[in-house]
């Protein structure tokens, strides 16, 4: 759906815009990440509505996660999640070995402290998509070496 280059440019401009328009400081940094996360949330909600329009009803949670890993990820990032793991108790780990939004940053550990703001939007995207499908969750991201990235999804039981 989203074309490769425009989406990446827009995303990095978005981060620039949000960090520049806020004053510097550590507390501000946390607020910027929240802002990006909320934006992602709204986009995820809309996007999943469109993507699941012609699919059959999901059987269970795992079915939903598979959809996120395959169709949803392909739509946004042009590739599937490389590895999905779960403990069958509401925790899912989605591993992407070459995460597209990090692929333009130099590989390795040089820009590691910049990573959170490049992942916040995506965390929100996943959380928004899941919430619209009726699954409440907390999504966090983790990077140890640059373009690889892990997203942890914790399902909130009602």
């Amino acid at each position: 759906m989203a074309d490769e280059a425009p989406f990446q440019f827009l995303h990095s401009e978005l981060i620039q815009y949000i960090t520049k328009s806020a004053e510097s400081g550590d507390t501000e940094n946390a607020r910027n990440i929240t802002k990006l996360e909320i934006m992602g949330f709204r986009v995820g909600q809309g996007l999943i509505e469109r993507l699941t329009k012609d699919t059959v009803r999901f059987k269970d949670e795992l079915d939903i996660m598979k959809f996120i890993c395959k169709d949803f990820w392909t739509c946004v990032f042009k590739k599937q999640i490389d590895n999905l793991r779960t403990n069958h108790q509401g925790i899912y780990v989605l591993q992407d070995n070459k995460f597209r939004l990090l692929s333009q940053l130099s590989a390795g550990k040089q820009y590691l402290e910049q990573a959170p703001k490049y992942l916040a939007f995506t965390c929100g995207l996943v959380r928004g998509a899941l919430s619209n499908l009726g699954v409440k969750s907390i999504v966090t991201a983790e990077v140890s070496v640059m373009p690889a990235c892990k997203f942890q999804v914790m399902i909130q039981k009602m």
Partner: peptide, 16 residues
């Protein structure tokens, strides 16, 4: 109806 509803949901001015 569903198609139209999807459009409504994707409208940034609409609050889900």
């Amino acid at each position: 109806l569903h198609n139209s509803f999807t459009d409504v949901m994707c409208n940034p001015f609409h609050n889900p």
